[in-house]
Design a protein around this nucleic acid. Structure first.
Length: 487
RNA sequence: GGUCUCUUGGCCGAGCGGUUAGGCACCGGUCUGCAAAACCGUCUACUCCAGUUCGAAUCUGGAAGAGACCUCCA
């Protein structure tokens, strides 16, 4: 089965061909660690986790690099040119690195909770200043940058005249950009308003600074991804990912930097996840309309009716295709939660199925459809719809209205192991090491209740059921006996 | 203003010219001491207008609305 990937560069689904199979290099722009991760951060985390998982599933050996930005972004509001991390540090009277490490840990904890696999390498920008300086030198040597008052700027006009590539990714026309670019800090140092900083001279009060041939300062925002992707994946690698909001200017500028430093584009495929919206608007820091992942997990936000588990969040995100916007609401999350619960129960119920000699279901076909859906640009909602189909089949098998043989049952187990657990990365949050104990206790109580019911002691029977319910254990009296589940 | 994207049933969301995707909610039924769960069934939508086609949610043109980027952003 061949994998098709939507390439932002061509705006088409393209057959995926690795540069050096079975190896694949995957680079994704990670977070800037000066605040808690919000729901929006979960989107690229999960989207590229799926890419990572599925490529592995297909047999590729993936080196996945996701950076941590702990330096370098300029802020252009009231605190002119002040490094974002530093600004927050001053407010909280902490060292910039303390802030960065604090939020890095919080970010990773949130990703772990969402069962996002850790990338192969998570480089930090501040640890790659030398590499960034080397790239600035290369671009200067190539003649596509100039020094101005201790800062180094990328010369967009020259680049455009020579390569005609500025706008290749974002479809922008340079002339339009020149007309619309705002007045920014350091603008007077630039030859042209659209030029971007490769190296920025630090003001005297700027703490995060490093020596360079041009000034004590810090690298420009776009540079770190070029430096770190080249270092760990090579100057040309397979897939570059990130949020759609990074398309311009960040990714466009990365291409420009690579073109000038290495003579070619950095990546063959560019993938962009779409935004999560809230009331139809992008959730983000600028608008102040974000809800942190921590707040989702605990329910402590006035827009949240209650807490939502990490797996609910993960499932909610996977129910939409990564290139579509996804609108947050309590209703939508609640629906995701219930749907997920249904699949988890179906998964747990597989072990109750007794194989028969006959077989009336076709699991192999469902498995094939899952591969087909994922190979079509990672269509997770379609995979989920097939898992629901399988859940219905599982319920019918237990009820006896369908039959499955040994081979079919093996495939059913594989279906959930491969697609639900391995590729979609759904974990059963109830699978704790206390489960065997809980299981035993609940069975004991169910036995007691059974006695009460045989004696038609409905009061006692209902009492036991209610007490269990108050502890989150739900009793279900079915035709085939009593079953239970944790809420 | 420029570039790009989107508009699907009560809600969330697939869909890439011809099979009612799927989930959640609602309603009816089976089951049950009651309840829940499960199962079966019901609800057959594509912003509007025109065109192409035997056939359009899907292609083309136009209108309206919404959003993203153009400044840090996942």
């Amino acid at each position: 089965m061949e994998l098709y990937v939507y390439n932002t560069l061509t705006r088409k689904k393209e057959l995926f061909k690795a540069i050096n199979p079975p190896n694949v290099g995957l680079y994704v722009c990670g977070p800037t660690v000066y605040g808690d991760a919000h729901l929006g951060h979960a989107r690229p985390g999960i989207t590229f986790d799926i890419v990572f998982r599925f490529l592995n599933f297909l047999g590729y050996k993936v080196r996945y690099v996701r950076n941590i930005t702990d330096v370098g972004h300029l802020e252009n509001d009231a605190d002119e040119g002040e490094d974002k991390i530093e600004k927050k540090a001053r407010l909280e009277q902490l060292e910039p690195m303390e802030i960065a490490q604090f939020y890095t840990k919080r970010y990773l904890d949130a990703m772990d909770a969402l069962n996002v696999r850790r990338p192969s390498i998570q480089p930090v920008a501040s640890g790659h200043i030398i590499e960034q300086i080397e790239i600035v030198k290369k671009i200067l040597d190539a003649g596509y940058a100039y020094i101005s008052n201790g800062s180094v700027y990328f010369d967009i006009i020259k680049y455009q005249n020579d390569t005609h590539k500025y706008g290749i990714l974002s479809n922008r026309v340079l002339e339009d950009m020149l007309a619309t670019t705002r007045e920014l800090d350091g603008q007077s140092e630039k030859h042209n308003s659209a030029d971007f900083a490769l190296w920025k001279k630090a003001s005297p009060e700027h703490i995060m600074r490093w020596p360079s041939p041009w000034s004590d300062g810090f690298p420009g925002w776009h540079l770190e991804c070029t430096a770190m992707s080249a270092k760990y994946l090579g100057e040309k690698f397979d897939i570059h990912g990130g949020g759609l909001d990074l398309l311009f200017p960040h990714h466009e500028s990365e291409i420009a930097q690579s073109m000038c430093a290495f003579g070619h584009e950095p990546a063959n495929y560019w993938m962009h996840n779409n935004m999560i919206t809230i009331g139809g608007q992008k959730m983000g820091k600028s608008l102040g309309n974000f809800i942190t992942l921590e707040e989702f997990f605990t329910g402590s936000h006035n827009l949240l009716e209650r807490a939502y588990s990490p797996m609910t969040i993960r499932f909610f995100i996977l129910q939409a295709h990564y290139r579509s916007t996804l609108d947050f609401s309590n209703e939508a999350l609640g629906a995701a939660e219930k749907g997920l619960k249904r699949l988890l129960e179906a998964q747990r119920n597989i072990k109750k199925i007794i194989p028969s000699k006959e077989n009336s279901v076709n699991i192999e076909e469902i498995k094939n459809k899952c591969i087909e859906a994922m190979c079509d640009d990672f269509n997770t909602p379609i995979v989920i719809s097939y898992l629901f189909e399988a859940a219905t089949i599982i319920n019918k098998l237990i009820e006896g209205s369908e039959k499955i043989d040994e081979q079919g049952l093996k495939e059913l187990n594989e279906l959930f192991a491969d697609w639900f657990v391995e590729v979609l990365g759904i974990t059963d949050e109830q699978n704790s090491n206390m489960m065997p104990t809980i299981e035993g206790l609940v069975k004991m109580i169910i036995e007691l209740r059974k006695e009460a019911r045989e004696n038609k002691d409905w009061k006692k029977s209902d009492e036991l059921r209610d007490q269990l319910a108050s502890l989150g254990v739900k009793i279900k009296d079915g035709k085939e006996g009593v079953s239970w589940s944790l809420e």
